[in-house]
Design a protein around this nucleic acid. Structure first.
Lengths: 143, 143
DNA sequence: ACAATAAAAGATATTTTTGTCTTTTATTTT
DNA sequence: AAAATAAAAGACAAAAATATCTTTTATTGT
């Protein structure tokens, strides 16, 4: 469904959302531990998301990654779009380049319906909304 | 969503279903052309599906691939399961190994719902059901 | 039996994804 | 200013996915 890169990205961003309230920052090692991912790999991914302004970062002592109030409103769909592109949201299920309403593949309509639901679900899921349940151990980001 | 291999596999199987009625067989080159895929690559894939009994094949002149009446009842879900395994149907959306109802990831419930619909859709879609619309150019397997 | 055909099998190549390691740059604290 | 810290950047490595090419085996028609 999502690439490994994207899975890590989503988990990391939700983790950062949880840990970086009131101006706190989270270090890359803590993030890697918190979401059970390879340190250097998630570092690369976050560098990318940082360049693309989805996450903030500062270097040096007490530095790390953080999400400001505005970034907390980003949705999982935003992450997916940036990391995996929008083929998940708009590409043909069977990989046909010219698949469309007027030139449909065999599963175009049924698949489109489900894909739209998926899209809506990911748009609706905001980075900031999971903090509380994570805090209460009602949901998890590792293993 | 699906791997390239799986996309080709689905398209090829639907193509064979369409072309191999009344005992006819389809050659690998015709298949590759018909679904716009690399010849040798789809050959490999069909070899695999043939070993796993999802498609029939005979060598030699007038040989080729075919689907018997029984195989026409196979669903796209069967193809997906054989080619990509069942991670699409049962794996965690965020890649967590231990994700479950009691140890859910942040999107477990919402994602599960959509995945079940996807699964149901693919189970319902039988290889034999597309022939007529393909014949009438109401749907397509290439480009 | 022989030649022709077509899939099966095996070997190899390329590209993409995933993962690791080292060096550099920016920031903070002392 | 110097030392310590932590992300950024760059180079490299391993694994998996995708694709191609060649040889072998089975079958058919002559």
């Amino acid at each position: 469904m999502f690439s490994k890169t994207c899975e890590y990205a989503i988990r990391a961003m939700i983790f950062i959302a949880q840990k970086s309230r009131d101006g706190d920052k989270v270090g890359i090692k803590e993030i890697a531990k918190g979401i059970d991912s390879p340190v250097h790999f998630i570092a690369k991914i976050l560098q990318d998301l940082s360049r693309k302004q989805l996450v903030g970062s500062v270097k040096g002592p007490n530095g790390g990654f953080y999400l400001d109030k505005n970034s907390l409103k980003y949705s999982l769909a935003d992450i997916v779009r940036v990391v995996d592109g929008d083929k998940l949201f708009s590409g043909c299920g069977l990989g046909l380049k010219q698949c469309s309403e007027t030139h449909p593949c065999p599963i175009h309509h049924e698949f489109g319906k489900i894909r739209r639901e998926m899209h809506a679900m990911l748009e609706k899921a905001k980075l900031g909304e999971f903090t509380e349940k994570l805090e209460k151990n009602l949901m998890f980001l590792k293993r």
